[in-house]
Structures are given as structure tokens and as C-alpha cells.
Amino acid sequence: MSTWLGRAWARGILTTRYPAAPAADDEAPETGRPPMPTRPLDELAEAPGSCPTGAIGPAAVDQGKCIRCARCRAAGFALTGPVEASGRRRSELVWPGGRPGATVPEAGLAPLGRSVHVFLVDVGSCNACNLEVLALANPYYDATRLGIFFTNSPRHADVLLVVGVPTEEMVEPVWRAYEAMPAPKAVVAVGACPTSGGVFAGNAGLRPGLDAVLPVDRYVPGCPPPPVAILDAILALIGRGRPRAGEA
């Protein structure tokens, strides 16, 4: 006869050690990581043609456009990049030569230093990003141990997590949710859709990205980003993220 307590006791602690330890393979499977060229980018002539969203250019890879479809593997890429790939500016997601550029260590947005309340807004997603954000509440990630709490109203929120490609119909609702938040406030674009339009970029009636609607403080690449990447983006926003590639 099992009971809640008996079951919990038998399972032990499930929670990840992230961010104290790096992300494990089961937390970030192959497509949870950005694609990196296995040889210098200018030697991989077929790579740009293999990319359905045009993320791979002749001189740089735009991780914000990458939908992690893995087609570039045939052209000499491997999905082995760092999970901590989010950037404060859109330009930080464009990696010259396919490697993350040097970044300076960031201070957190001033008064949001310790604990934040986050609110999720869907502006046109496929539901996968929504569920990856909600997965932060499950015992494997347990965002509350890091002082990250979900809230039910934008009026109580410090951070707005926006998922999906902004549709014309959602521009006003998401703007009103942003307006309702007390300052200081921050906006995180979660996934390829709010960052660049993702696979739907160019469809009729869609905004090209969330920065055409709201001021964005952090962009998280991935389609969808794994929960550890979303966790890292929120922590980086408040200056508590793992050290990033290229940081001294």
C-alpha cells in the first residue's frame, strides 16, 4: 500500500544540481544545445543551404533563428554548444564563425538581485515552450529553491516570460500585461519564436519578433529551450547565472 509520504521517501531527492553543476545529458538532450561547426565555418560550404530558417550564414551562425532541426549535421555541424546560450542583446546570439563571442560578465538588473516572481504570457506558441517553462516547477528543476516563483498576475511579477511568435491579436494583450507590471521589470523572450519568428518568420500577420512589440531584456535560443536553459536565462538576468563561454 503506497502513500504520498512513502512514495516521496522511496524516490529520494530528484532535483538537479544545476546551476551548481553543469547541465547533464538527460537535462539537455542533443537538440537542447546550439549547433556548432566541427570545422571552420568557411570550409563548410553546404551548411547555409541545409538550414531551413537561414540561421547559418557564410560567416556567422544566428542562434536566435535556429530551430534545432539538426539538418546541419549532414553539412558538418554538431549540436554540442553550451546550454547557457541566452543573450542580453539580439546581436549576442549571432555567433561569428559559429562560436560564441566574448562577453563581459554581466551585473544583474539592479534591484532584481535575489528573488523574482515570473509570469508566463503566450503570444502565439505551439505549447511546447509553455510546458517547458511550467516544467521549472517540477521536482527535477524546482525553481523555487533558487528564489524563482510563478505568480498568477502580472501585477505581482518582476519578470515576464514570453513564449511564441507575436500574432497581431496578442500584441495588445501582452502590452497590457507588461504595463500592469510594477517597475523594475524585465522581459525574457523564451525560444526561437519570440526571438526571431523561428520557423514561422514571414507568415502573414505575425510580428517579426517580440522586440517589435516590447523592450526585451534577454533572448533564449532553442525550439523549445530545455528547462535548464530557461532557468539559466532567468538567473543570468538577475546576475546569478553560470559563467558563460568567453567570460574571463
Binding site: 502565439g124 500574432t167 491579436e169 507568415n203 502573414a204 500577420g205
Partner: peptide
Amino acid sequence: YKSRRILAS
């Protein structure tokens, strides 16, 4: 609200 006009695309 989140019609992404996928089928036409």
C-alpha cells in the same frame, strides 16, 4: 488569438 497562419504557409 494565436493564429499563426500555418496552413497557408
